[in-house]
Amino acid sequence: MERVEIYSMSINLGKEICRRRREQKLTQEDLAELSDLSVNFISRLERTKNQNISIQKLDSIARALNTTTPDIIMNAYRFKEVKVENHQDNTPVFIKKVLNELRKMAPDKAERVCKSFIVLAKEINKD
């Protein structure tokens, strides 16, 4: 059975903010005070995947960390999380075999075979 994988990516701003905060030897309390945000907000941002943050709050944090919002966002891509989802392929085996044979053909020949097959399938479905 053929395996199909779908990749989705998300960035984690909290990990980047935490990294920068620790690099500057600041506590969450220090960052909260410097950014005029609550310690609970900083803590939740750093420890959870909930990245629901306004641009204003992100700007406040960036200023408190002596950097810019775009810089935090760009560096957060280093901590991107890649999620792989497997989807069952329910395509019948005989269709997979036909597709495999078509892939082996030259494109113009495969196109002629497909057109012939479509004509044949339509003719069979008329009955």
Rank of each mutant, 00 (worst) to 15 (best):
A32T: 04
S60T: 01
L26A: 01
V39E: 13
R19K: 14
R22C: 10
T48E: 15
T69Q: 10
N52L: 01
I118C: 02
E23C: 01
N125D: 14
E33Q: 12
F94H: 11
C18H: 06
V4R: 07
R22Q: 13
K115H: 05
E81I: 14
N40L: 06
E16N: 04
R22M: 13
S60K: 12
Q51W: 00
D89E: 01
K122V: 01
P107M: 08
N90P: 01
K83C: 03
D36G: 12
R47A: 11
D71W: 13
D127I: 06
L31T: 04
K126V: 02
K97M: 05
E29H: 06
M74R: 15
P92C: 08
H87E: 11
M1G: 15
K115T: 04
N50M: 05
R44N: 12
N50P: 02
R44F: 00
E16I: 02
T91H: 00
I55M: 09
S35R: 02
V119C: 00
M1A: 13
V82F: 12
K57C: 11
K122R: 14
D59A: 08
R22S: 05
K122S: 03
V39W: 05
Q51F: 00
L26S: 03
T68N: 07
K104V: 05
E85R: 11
T69D: 03
E33I: 07
R19D: 08
Q56R: 14
S54P: 04
V84Y: 05
L37R: 13
E85G: 00
S116M: 07
K49H: 10
V98H: 00
D108T: 09
T48M: 09
V39R: 15
E111H: 07
L65K: 10
L31M: 06
S54A: 03
M74H: 14
K15S: 01
N90F: 13
I118P: 00
V39G: 03
E23G: 04
I61W: 10
S8V: 08
A62V: 08
E101K: 10
E5V: 15
M1C: 09
E23S: 06
E2A: 09
S60A: 14
